[in-house]
Amino acid sequence: MSVSMPSLEREQIRAHFWRDLMVLTNRSIQVTLRVPWAIIPNLAISLFFLFVYQGGLSGIAKMPGFSGTHYLNFILPVAVVSGAVGGAGSAGQALIRDLDNRYFTKLRITPVSRTALVLAPMIAGMLQLVVQTALIPVVALLMGLKTPTGAAGLLVIILLAAGWGLAFAGYAVATALRSGNGQAAQAATFIFFPLLFLSDTFVPLNLIGAKWMRIAAHINPTTYVFDAMRSVLVRGWQGRPLLWGALAIVILCAVTLSFAVYTATKTLRRS
């Protein structure tokens, strides 16, 4: 079929990536701020982890493998990372809302940068998780947390959580785009559970009994993020664990963001 319409002289509008990204990210943040209660369940779960594990398992910190570490310092990264991943999931949920109410289609008919269209909910989700994860160490401080690296150490933890969250935001957005369905996107975030629990989540690696679980923990990138966080919470400034943690985040971000961009390109190519 061939369809022609009168040629109209009009200046071509170039895609302004940064402007589009800013406008769309602002809009995502605006919407998030209008449903503040949406962050409560995720924050509550993270704090629940902190209270329950600290209350129920703190006694095991007396075992020799812990080398005298306070269990609150050991378990805090688990609460922070779970909060970060939950916050990242909201990026996928925001996209699903846009798909459901067809606003996403409306955006697709604008000359907006396709990359900005996908990155904006991820960035908004990441900012949301930064706020959430910042609240968790505050609660830990109220519970008596003392760290050798002080406020700077807590800032590093928040940055690591933000990086980890960005990786999961990429994954959440990609699954949302791929499935176009809120429940499917939510279900896909269950990958987080093996990642969180097949690691040195509750005890140091040398205290994990099952060999297969030790192997899984060695392969699991979450282990390196936990180690990086624990190094600043327990031992002070150490380059090696921080480097490994950052590397794990960079690799995971590269994988999930590539997946997101690939999925977006495929889905938005009218695909």
């Binding site: 605006q30 449903v35 409306k106 008919i109």
Partner: peptide
Amino acid sequence: VALQDTGVDPML
């Protein structure tokens, strides 16, 4: 373009 389903964000 205005499609059959109004594409608006109800939160704004």
